[in-house]
Design a protein around this nucleic acid. Structure first.
Lengths: 115, 115
DNA sequence: GGCTCATATAAGTTGCTATTCATATAAGAT
DNA sequence: ATCTTATATGAATAGCAACTTATATGAGCC
């Protein structure tokens, strides 16, 4: 029972660690707009090919993203598009913590996240 | 505009990094049940005094927790109790990714998080 | 087959961060 | 003022995770 909680917290920490990286978030944000081949992800993020490949592997192994090969290209998409909502809620939370105002950006928060 | 997004993603990553640590999550979970003096946190988590103190400092500087001294004791509480809901939603998400079943534990997910 | 483009993997380096050990501060009690 | 209890800080270590450079795989094309 205590053990079950610990196990879940470890799993949660693992997940948060994976999404808690700026470059991976950048990638997730690109893919969140719709499936993309790796080359597109490289272009849109401006990251090096190997670095993108490295992070995609992490996301793949965590089953956060899915892949599909079509010809030469390998398309990546989110396993569950709800991830953007979830992360946006976290972003909104984090944003309020610091209290700063960053114009030109609003988190695409789902309706359920008011406060 | 692109820049604003980057800034927000960095802030988000920072937040997720902070909560993405098993021991900090343990501490957050203890505090989430109500305010606690440090000694209680040490007892309930089983972590060493210095380690708890270290993690509390991180949480304090991120303004995730608040403190209040009463006599010899320093009480810690969540700055925003909604954090547990938010993290539970993440936990539920992470849990579904792996597909495993862990009996004896259910995330205290808020009603707004269905899927 | 050989060539090119798209993506992945391997090995090596570096830097950060959790942890520990030792010490300091701060408050109350005697 | 000293002693004890509660908490914080500093320095040192260790392990890991991001990033880079170099190389491999894999698909289509000529």
């Amino acid at each position: 029972m205590q053990d079950a909680e610990n196990k879940m917290l470890e799993k949660l920490a693992g997940f948060l660690k994976i999404v808690g990286d700026t470059n991976r978030l950048r990638i997730i944000w690109v893919i969140g707009k719709g499936e993309r081949p790796v080359s597109e992800i490289i272009n849109e993020t401006g990251l090096s090919q190997t670095l993108v490949s490295f992070h995609l592997k992490v996301l793949r192994e965590a089953e956060i993203v899915e892949t599909e090969r079509r010809g030469v290209f390998i398309y990546y998409r989110l396993g569950n598009p709800g991830l953007i909502d979830l992360l946006s809620a976290c972003g909104e939370y984090a944003h309020k913590l610091t209290g700063e105002i960053t114009p030109g950006f609003t988190w695409p928060c789902p309706p359920w996240f008011n406060k």
